[in-house]
């Protein structure tokens, strides 16, 4: 196995996991029911573990998480989107975990530094995807309101999904093949939920290269401010 760390790729995947973990953590104390709060926190902790491993390949994990400016983050714009209502959170999780499961599946079989992490994480992510799929089925096939909200969330986040399949320097994955597998998976779930696959482009006109190039959407700055303020206010503090 090669031990060369492709830093851009490690940052990209690490930032995806870190940012989504933080977003999911925002549900703590606010989830619709206690059981779901624990479920979302579990997923967030799985992602945080992945982020720690990936960022540590590049440098000091705390410095990278808490002291970088917005433009230095390489996560896709999908994961930084606000939680919105519960349907938005589930739609974001469905889109992302379906992608992440396929991605880690490929990385686990690769001859790279990512293989050991991916082999472990792919099982975690399979559960995240299962969780999101079950909720998509129930919201899509639930009440008129849950159906309307799920449709709206899937449509609203669709424009951020194209970025998932763009090439990342140092990441040995076949983007177009990944997209095909992803689309099949999403189509299957939405059919079972009685929901239509969103139409329209998978990119925003103003994406400008997207999160992998450090271009982020407006809500991300506020999220970072909240995530980083404690560390920046008390440098070097420990529990």
């Amino acid at each position: 196995m090669t031990t060369v760390v492709p830093e851009r790729a490690a940052l990209a995947l690490g930032d995806d996991a870190l940012v989504l973990s933080h977003r999911l953590g925002e549900w703590a104390g606010h989830a619709p029911v206690l059981e779901e709060e624990v479920a979302l926190a579990n997923i967030a902790l799985d992602l945080l573990g992945q982020a720690r491993t990936l960022l540590s390949l590049v440098g000091d994990e705390d410095d990278l998480a808490f002291l970088r400016e917005e433009r230095a983050f390489r996560n896709v714009q999908l994961v930084e989107q606000p939680n919105g209502d519960f349907a938005h959170t589930i739609a974001r999780q469905l889109y992302f975990s379906a992608y992440q499961e396929l991605l880690y599946g490929q990385l686990a079989a690769s001859d790279t530094v990512f293989a050991p992490l991916a082999a472990k994480a792919v099982k975690e992510v399979a559960y995240h995807r299962d969780h999101a799929e079950h909720w998509t089925l129930r919201l899509g096939d639930g009440t008129d309101e849950s159906r309307r909200r799920m449709r709206h969330a899937l449509d609203a986040l669709w424009r951020y999904t194209g970025e998932l399949f763009e090439p990342v320097e140092g990441l040995p994955v076949d983007g177009p093949a990944l997209r095909e597998g992803w689309l099949g998976r999403i189509t299957g779930v939405l059919e079972r939920a009685g929901l239509a696959l969103p139409e329209g482009p998978q990119h925003t006109p103003w994406a400008a290269g997207g999160g992998r190039q450090g271009i982020h959407t407006e809500p991300f700055g506020r999220m970072l401010a909240e995530m980083q303020h404690l560390h920046r206010s008390h440098p070097g503090a420990s529990w």
Binding site: L34, E35, V38, A39, R138
Partner: peptide, 20 residues
């Protein structure tokens, strides 16, 4: 014990609450 809308979700909630 726990609350869940149906058996499948109860199983998943149980996994998260009692076997993590």
């Amino acid at each position: 014990s726990l609350h869940a809308p149906d058996a499948e979700m109860a199983l998943r909630n149980a996994r998260d609450l009692y076997t993590r």
